[in-house]
Design a protein around this nucleic acid. Structure first.
Length: 424
DNA sequence: GCGATCAGAT
DNA sequence: CACATCTGATCGC
């Protein structure tokens, strides 16, 4: 009854089959080179990148899925799965499951750019796959499921980046990226400016695995544009670089890039004003940000709303398209988390679905922990998490941070169980 | 000493 | 606000 059958982006507990949406680190916590709990399903591209991320991984456990095709899974009960392009990062897919339990769609992280060809293809695939069926449970990437998040297509944002670079013809440029993703942005820059982009050696290997051989280099002398790990992208970095050469930093992200207080004695720039902003100020910044699209946060730093997650209006479009019976968010990491349906009530009007979720949301606010039940059904883990939360509560001001990091780790991913399938 | 897990940072 | 990632501390073996 409680036994896990299918896990998506969830690796810590027992299951019969495991599915990976994409290879970003927060979706692979618990996966390791010595993995042997069971077969791992993923896209061809993820499979190609697998050994780079997990050297020595037992290849016989990897099962690749053709995108847009139903695959039968060998389980006691008949279950089929289809992978659909998620338009998030290379190899990222959504999973559509069909079985006795009905139809479940797990988006993983996804971008639903309505005008893009990939999205249109995905839409057709889903429509053809569903025929007259309806999605019973939609697990959705609700990272930006709030009306205040609105950004342009990545094509538009990429042009904004190029414009910034062109406006600094004599400057070096650094762009913050992750270990995977934003390749299209870099390619666009490379083609428009007819220059190579510097990346760090590991990242060049990834580029090669993705079949990108001509636009990237690890030789600094060849280019003034460098893509650097996002975590190394900071005010200090930029100030340090500017001590040597004029350099501009560009952060492509759906999130406003926020300055952190500098833990040193110098307060030469107005960092503190941003640090102490209230919620109202924050919303003001958000409005400004999205009317102007580009924001200069600092003497040397721009953020451009180039996002690999769907913005609110795209989430709305997606939900309207599917009209699922039930929606669950896969990201429940912040204190401001609300069930996706809370902001989607206009689609459903006063339907019972909406009511149910508003109640859930209310309960969540009261109990503080209701959201665990969205994706977690292992009672031991719930207890464990509650214990941790209780401990962290005692630290008052530390609570926010502690909860955020704890919740982040636990609340990505889902497990389908017979229990999950039969009720709700 | 090693891997897994966690806290805290960017 | 919370993206994805890394470093360093701690725990169990």
């Amino acid at each position: 009854m409680e036994r896990g059958i299918i896990s998506v982006d969830r690796w810590s507990e027992g299951s019969q089959l495991y599915f990976l949406t994409h290879l970003h680190a927060d979706h692979t916590v618990g996966l390791s080179p010595r993995w042997k709990k069971g077969p791992v399903y993923c896209s061809h591209i993820s499979a190609r990148l697998f050994h780079h991320k997990f050297p020595g991984f037992d290849t016989s456990l990897i099962r690749t899925l053709q995108i847009g095709q139903w695959h039968s899974l060998s389980l006691q009960t008949k279950v089929e799965v289809m992978a659909i392009e998620a338009n998030h990062c290379p190899g990222a897919v959504m999973y559509l499951f069909r079985g006795e339990f009905g139809v479940t769609l797990y988006t993983g992280d996804f971008r639903w750019e309505v005008a893009s060809e990939i999205t249109q293809m995905g839409k057709n695939m889903i429509a053809n796959a569903l025929k007259n069926d309806k999605v019973d449970i939609l697990y959705i990437d609700n990272t930006y499921c709030n009306p205040s998040y609105s950004f342009p297509s990545r094509e538009v944002a990429a042009q904004q980046v190029v414009n910034i670079i062109n406006s600094y013809p004599e400057h070096d440029i650094i762009i913050g990226i992750d270990t995977l993703g934003k390749e299209d942005l870099l390619l666009y820059i490379s083609k428009m400016l007819k220059i190579k982009i510097w990346v760090w050696p590991e990242r060049l290997q990834t580029m090669h695995l993705l079949g990108l051989h001509d636009n990237f280099t690890t030789k600094t002398t060849l280019t003034r544009v460098r893509a650097v790990p996002r975590y190394s992208f900071s005010v200090e970095t930029l100030e340090g670089l500017n001590a040597m050469r004029p350099t501009i930093g560009i952060m492509p992200s759906g999130l406003p890039w926020k300055l952190k207080k500098v833990g040193r004695k110098d307060n030469s720039c107005s960092l503190s004003s941003l640090k102490t902003e209230t919620d109202n100020d924050l919303h003001m910044n958000m409005r400004n940000r999205y009317t102007n699209n580009i924001e200069k946060h600092h003497q040397y730093i721009y953020t451009v709303p180039y996002s690999d997650h769907s913005c609110f209006s795209e989430i709305v479009e997606f939900v309207k398209f599917l009209c699922p019976n039930n929606i669950k968010g896969i990201v429940s990491s912040s204190l401001s988390y609300v069930d996706p349906c809370y902001h989607l009530h206009n689609i459903y009007g006063t339907s019972s679905l909406c009511q149910k979720h508003v109640i859930k949301e209310e309960k969540a606010r009261v109990e503080g922990e209701c959201k665990f039940t969205l994706v977690c059904d292992s009672s031991t883990e719930v207890k464990y998490k509650r214990k941790r939360i209780r401990q962290s509560r005692q630290y008052g001001a530390c609570l926010r941070k502690t909860r955020v990091s704890l919740l982040r780790r636990f609340n990505r991913g889902a497990k389908l169980t017979t229990e999950d399938c039969s009720d709700e």
